[in-house]
Design a protein around this nucleic acid. Structure first.
Ligand code: FES
Ligand code: FES
Lengths: 141, 141
DNA sequence: ACATTCCTGACTAAATTGGTCAAGTATAGA
DNA sequence: TCTATACTTGACCAATTTAGTCAGGAATGT
C-alpha cells in the first residue's frame, strides 16, 4: 500500500498555494522551485485541480493559480478525488455481486478490505488543508 | 493507494487455512482451487509466511501447511510484514533529517503522511485472523 | 518405486508511475 | 504592437513494480 507522488505532490503544491496566494497568484514555476517538483508534472496535476474547481487560474504575466475555496473547505479527499488518487482495497467490482477470482460469491476477505477502505477514507475526509497548515505552524514554534 | 494482490492473497489463503487446518494439513493445491489463486504464486507467498513462523509445513503425500499460532494471535500486520506488503506514505527516509526532494528540512506534508501511516497501521494491528473468520460466520447467518 | 507436496530460483509480460517534450493560447506590460 | 510570462493540452517514454509462469529439486507417505 503506498501513496503515489501524484497525490503527495498535489497536497504539497496546494499547501504551498495556501501559504502564498493571499496577495498574488502563485505561478507553477515558483511552486516547482520551492517544493522541488517537476514543472511539467505540476502542469498535469493543476489541470485536474482546476477541472475540479479546487483552484482558479489567471493567465499572462504575473499570472498563476489561486485556491478557489477557503483552506478549511478543501479536504484531502477532495484533492485526491480530483487527481484520481483513489483508495482501492478490494479486487472485485463493488457493485457486482460476483467476487474477485470470478466466483459467484464475495470472497472471505472482501468485507475486511471494505472496512479498511472506509477507515482510510475517514482520515481524508477529516483533514483539511487548513489543518495541515496549522500543524506546521505549531511545529515551528 | 492500493492494496496489492500479494497481501490480499496472503490473507485469503490464511483465512482458508484457519478454516480447514484443524484436522489435516492443507495443501496449496486445495487453497489454489478453493480461492482461485495461482499455485505457483501461492508457493512464493507461503515461503515467506513460513520464514516468519506464521505457518508450519509438512512435506510428502497428504502434507501441506498448518497455522503455527492460534488465529487470534495472528494479526494482519504480522501477515503483511511477512510478505513485505508495507504501508509506505512518506517519500523520504524517515530516519534521515533530510526531506523528500533532497532539501535539508522535512516537507510541509511529511507529518501528515506519517499520521496517515499510523492511522492505517492501527487497523492492521487490531485485526486478527480470528476477527476475520467471526465476521464471516455472522455474515452467513 | 512413485505420487504428492513442499522448496527455490530464474525469468517475463503487462501495467503503472513519474515523468519529458512539443506545440500551442492568453494576457500584462514595455 | 511586440514580447516575455504563464497557463493549456496532448503525445510520448523510461524505469519500476506487479503478478505471475516455468523448471527443476528435495522430502515423505503408501
Ligand atoms: S475482494 Fe471483493 S470478492 Fe474478493
Ligand atoms: S515526505 Fe518526508 S519530507 Fe516530504
Amino acid at each position: 500500500m503506498k501513496l503515489t507522488s501524484k497525490g503527495r505532490y498535489a497536497v504539497m503544491a496546494l499547501a504551498d498555494l495556501a501559504q502564498f496566494d493571499s496577495i498574488n497568484p502563485v505561478s507553477l514555476r515558483d511552486i516547482s522551485l520551492r517544493q522541488g517538483i517537476s514543472l511539467d508534472y505540476l502542469e498535469q496535476i493543476f489541470l485536474k485541480l482546476k477541472k475540479n474547481q479546487i483552484v482558479k487560474s489567471i493567465r499572462g504575466t504575473h499570472g498563476g493559480y489561486v485556491l478557489s475555496k477557503k483552506p478549511n473547505e478543501i479536504k484531502l479527499n477532495n484533492i485526491f478525488y480530483a487527481v484520481d488518487e483513489k483508495v482501492k482495497t478490494v479486487q472485485c467490482k463493488k457493485e457486482s455481486k460476483k467476487g474477485c477470482n470470478g466466483k459467484a460469491t464475495k470472497c472471505v476477505t472482501h468485507n475486511l478490505w471494505d472496512e479498511l477502505e472506509t477507515h482510510i477514507n475517514s482520515f481524508f475526509e477529516k483533514k483539511s488543508l487548513e489543518d495541515l497548515l496549522k500543524e506546521n505552524i505549531e511545529r515551528r514554534i
